[in-house]
Design a protein around this nucleic acid. Sequence first.
DNA 1: GCTTTAAGGTATGCCGACAAACCATTGGCT
DNA 2: AGCCAATGGTTTGTCGGCATACCTTAAAGC
Lengths: 240, 240
Amino acid sequence: MNASAVERLSPVLRPVRAGNGFEEALEQILQVIRLGLVADGERLPSERELAELLRISRVTLREVLKVLQEQGLVESRRGRYGGTFVHTPRTAPDSAELRRRVTDVDVEDVLRFREVLEVGAAELCAAHELTADQSGRLREALAATEDAPLADYRRRDTLLHLALAELSGSPSLAERYAAVRATVNELLDCIPLLVRNLEHSQRQHTALVEAVLDGDPDGAREMMREHCSGTAALLRGFLG
Amino acid sequence: MNASAVERLSPVLRPVRAGNGFEEALEQILQVIRLGLVADGERLPSERELAELLRISRVTLREVLKVLQEQGLVESRRGRYGGTFVHTPRTAPDSAELRRRVTDVDVEDVLRFREVLEVGAAELCAAHELTADQSGRLREALAATEDAPLADYRRRDTLLHLALAELSGSPSLAERYAAVRATVNELLDCIPLLVRNLEHSQRQHTALVEAVLDGDPDGAREMMREHCSGTAALLRGFLG
DNA sequence: GCTTTAAGGTATGCCGACAAACCATTGGCT
DNA sequence: AGCCAATGGTTTGTCGGCATACCTTAAAGC
């Protein structure tokens, strides 16, 4: 087989899974933690439930949890009302870890893809009628970011954006957004949280949700684009 | 563990892989065929190369090829200059197959996600300078669609869009687009190819590439959106 | 027409993920 | 105090996918 044919296919033919099935499960649980779907101190589902959700055996799942435990990300307690508890580190990543993250991920790729997904989601949300339930959920998520303690801001911000992605009406989009956002959060953990940016961000959130609820796709799109560019510029500045 | 916590996580915690690793490989090779990356009568990479690309053993790969062979999608020939040849069926899918496809895929999800990715890709392409190589590649792909025989139009159209996605500068975006486009093609195979639509489509392609090469993101975006809406309306009309 | 070479086809032994069953620990409930 | 239920922890045997090595086929090239 000549080389060019292989080259033509390689964008599609990725390795079927990176390493063993175990690594994929690890990645997914890390994603849950990075997204803050389970907050610091909260409990993951029981091993039996997690294993079923991920469709892996409990034995393999426990291998994954063991790794997370060794890294201090979770802690297990036995007995009734026990479980696996998330324990996110309070300390910023050291410079070696920082360098690892920046070299491991293609920052430009992530930022671009994120913007495309978020902008698309915002536009989709504004373009179709939301049910009262959905509007309520969005408003709630926005309100939660407004009165967030500084330490929990990133988490609630993530949940707001995740809600928007889910309300886009495209489960595939929401799924990819969750994945890419987990990576973005890992990058954001490498740079300082500036209160000034945070206030700016909050104004954009409000305007964004307003545009979505008003059914103004163009407005929602441009607001979201601005919002994303802001984060992107920040990250490029600190990491580039 | 209460049910709501599980519910909160389930958007992220998908099964780690649908079935065995074998099925994932099957899906990827099907994707190559559906995208037309290997045209009718052309050869796939050798088993040894494919196995390495997918990072699966040759034994498992051969299981996959056996399935494809049984469905008449590929044909293997031994000896030097042999190989595994793609043999796409000329006959339209029967009504049972059609029903299966429409129930198996969430058509709204696919169409929305596709539009978000394509529109985003077009905008990104127009927003950054393309190298002479890249511009050339785009022009070539466009030219190929212009003088395409009817039977090969869909394939060249796919390659043009794929090129655009790759030139977006976000490999993640390109990868997701490839996946979603494979599904779109499967749906398109269920409906008739109308020459009138095709001509319209071709005019849009020209305008789109022009906007991209002119560095006009807004123009590219709107052109692409129109282009996607057209296909979407067609599919919704026939399948909805 | 023989050799070479690149491809598909086959056989063997190993290891990791799995399912299933069981043990150990904890805290609430009676 | 004792029981119960829900959780993490452990053991065992099975099986699918793996690497590896080898066999068979067919066309190019001398």
